[in-house]
Design a protein around this nucleic acid. Structure first.
Lengths: 242, 242
DNA sequence: TGTATCCTTTATGTATACATACCATGCAGC
DNA sequence: GCTGCATGGTATGTATACATAAAGGATACA
């Protein structure tokens, strides 16, 4: 593995783990010392992470870990949901290969199996996160649009905008299973709308799906909890210490 | 001006001018020789342009000028229009300072003046492009959302997705004046919807505005014309040689 | 004691040297 | 004549040296 990629991955992990705090300056040299690469690949990684939105470039040069407000998080969901709505509509309008539809339906079916699993939601949750991520990835591929994939990829790169992030957040809610089932119904409806070439309906359903994610965030925020990055770019709810 | 910025601007211009053709490989050394900077700032510029979408990174390393299909262009309009719709909605929902509304209305009024100008559309077109760009910029600022601005900025960075690009394209259409007037009505309606805190209506109007841009593109494509980059990231229609 | 200035330190920006990998070309052998 | 291997050139990846600018601290003067 190249030093650039290695540095990128490790530095991203450090940020998401909170080992470098929001607002904190990230100098090339400090990363260079910590990771063990020279300044050149470190610089590449810093620029890349700034593009992703995890770092912000300072006026005088250099970078700092970006801090996000609740408003930012809400907006990130809106953006992602809106673009996923467009993705669904374009997929429906252009038509999707039968194989892709089969993959989507298969993913949904495997989630159904997981929901019926004896072990319960908590035990199977990690698998659910992977499968859900797969569903969203398949949907993005179904639209078969590099331009859209680029925009959506950037929007989803924000840690709290990813499905896995929100599913993690949902996992500890009492009504987790209900929410997962609701999401399943939405997934199913979107796929059928795409199969039936109903663009407007597919878009509306996908945006409704995003509204669910937003509602869950509202719950998490209202319940006196704090949001914290965890590895993989997800969020967890944790009761705030008094 | 730093070498990095200088290299970025000049290289972007070279690409938009078509002096390096789509698909052509852009090596660090060739740019370094051409611009006069060392490989380090050139590399930074290349990575940046790849993020923008003007270059694509090759599997074996290095970069090439990205080529866009008609489908890509259509999708870019959709993405931009969709995100601008979200921008309008968020601005309406959160409320906009009276000063910003005044700025928006003032921009519209100045465009009205231009439309009533004796010199005609052709002569005043350059000013119109600037003012229209300003309108869209003000709208993005009105939403006051860094996250949304980031996504929208990326989507609008694609040369043919910018309002100026499409206005250039519209300029040579027979019905240019009609289209400009229609856009004015849409601009006005969006601003009033935002002022009245009608989020859904603001979003719908903005998306309709994007539909106009798309329709103009369809006209350009159907009329056996080719699309070509010109400096400033715009498109021009030019009758295809037989 | 406070403020201003200068110096030192540390950061980034830049250039370049070096290593490595890939591709193309040429030569030799079959 | 074709194929395979070797060699060279050119590309990127990486490391590092050097320049410059900004920030912080210390010292001197008011």
């Amino acid at each position: 593995m190249s030093q650039s990629v290695n540095t990128l991955l490790r530095l991203r992990e450090l940020i998401l783990n909170g080992e470098v705090r929001p607002g904190e300056r990230v100098s090339e040299l400090s990363v260079s010392d910590r990771i063990g690469a020279s300044r050149t690949p470190v610089r590449a990684a810093l620029m890349r992470l700034a593009d992703e939105g995890l770092l912000e470039s300072l006026p005088g040069g250099g970078f700092a870990v970006r801090s996000f407000t609740e408003r930012d998080i809400r907006d990130a969901i809106e953006v992602r949901g809106t673009l996923e709505g467009l993705t669904a509509r374009i997929a429906a309008e252009h038509g999707v290969a039968e194989g892709t539809l089969a993959d989507l339906r298969d993913t949904i079916a495997r989630i159904d199996d997981l929901l019926g699993d004896d072990r319960g939601v908590e035990a199977t949750f990690a698998e659910y996160v992977v499968l859900n991520e797969q569903f969203h990835t398949l949907l993005a591929e179904a639209a078969d649009s590099p331009i859209l994939a680029q925009s959506l990829g950037r929007a989803a790169a924000l840690p709290f905008a990813s499905p896995s992030g929100f599913l993690q957040a949902q996992s500890v809610l009492p009504e987790a299973r209900l929410i997962l089932t609701l999401a399943q119904e939405q997934h199913r409806a979107v796929v059928e709308a795409i199969a039936n070439r109903e663009g407007a309906r597919a878009e509306a359903l996908m945006r409704e799906h995003a509204r669910l994610a937003r509602r869950n965030l509202e719950l998490a925020l209202r319940d006196r909890t704090i949001l914290q990055h965890i590895p993989g770019g997800a969020l967890i709810r944790r009761r705030q210490r008094t």
